[in-house]
Computed example of a mutant assay.
Amino acid sequence: MMQPFLPGLTMPSRPAEIRDARTALAHYPNMTTEDLCRYAKHLGASAELFVDSLFMRLGERAFPMPEHERCDRALILPNGTPIRIQVKTRHAVTINGDYVFNLRQRSERGATGRGPYEATDFDMLAKVILSENVVRFTADWQHRQVIHASEIAQLRRDPRASLDAALARLGHTDAIPGGWDADLDLAA
């Protein structure tokens, strides 16, 4: 027996598309390519929420950007400077265990997208591997980016390191807790 939320009010049954999503996504990342494409918006939103969760755990202030913007999040530095962040996720792994990110804009009309991003579209990229629960931040501008299998354990152990390296690359070493004393040429 189900307790109604309000006397005489019962919740409607779940729509079929929500039941279908729940069934397909229960097997993530072991899904068909068709289902990965069908639920790309769900997975993209999951990646953005994962980045939000990481920012909260790191004590950072980040805010979602409207859908029409060229970036997904704005990270507000302690001095009030906004950093525009684009969040991308990858689900498939190469034969070497690496994850390759090709930076193209997606379109609701199809998986071909609207072409590559421009360097002025965002300041930092957050590359998310949902199946591994890791994110790697970078301010390095390349249309093809890789997270190597050998990096995953370190990204999980120290999720702040790549954020700090990206902030240093952007010239915001003052926003790094404890400062930055590494070589800026190594900051990605």
Rank of each mutant, 00 (worst) to 15 (best):
129 I>T: 00
152 I>K: 09
183 D>V: 00
63 F>I: 12
107 S>Y: 04
8 G>H: 14
141 W>A: 13
11 M>V: 09
58 L>F: 11
161 A>W: 08
18 I>G: 02
4 P>S: 08
155 L>Y: 00
168 A>D: 03
28 Y>M: 05
163 L>D: 11
57 R>T: 14
131 S>K: 12
172 H>M: 04
160 R>K: 12
177 P>V: 10
159 P>F: 06
56 M>Y: 11
118 E>Y: 08
24 A>W: 05
74 A>S: 12
90 R>E: 14
33 T>N: 15
173 T>W: 04
41 K>H: 09
123 D>F: 07
62 A>M: 14
12 P>M: 06
120 T>L: 01
29 P>C: 07
128 V>N: 01
184 L>W: 06
106 R>F: 13
3 Q>D: 06
6 L>M: 13
124 M>F: 03
43 L>H: 06
54 L>A: 03
141 W>M: 15
160 R>S: 14
45 A>N: 15
109 R>F: 15
40 A>D: 15
180 W>E: 02
148 H>D: 06
104 R>W: 11
118 E>N: 12
36 L>Q: 12
16 A>N: 04
24 A>E: 14
135 V>Q: 00
71 C>L: 02
126 A>C: 07
160 R>N: 06
76 I>E: 07
140 D>I: 07
69 E>K: 13
178 G>P: 07
61 R>E: 10
127 K>H: 00
80 G>V: 02
90 R>F: 00
153 A>E: 14
6 L>Q: 13
99 Y>V: 03
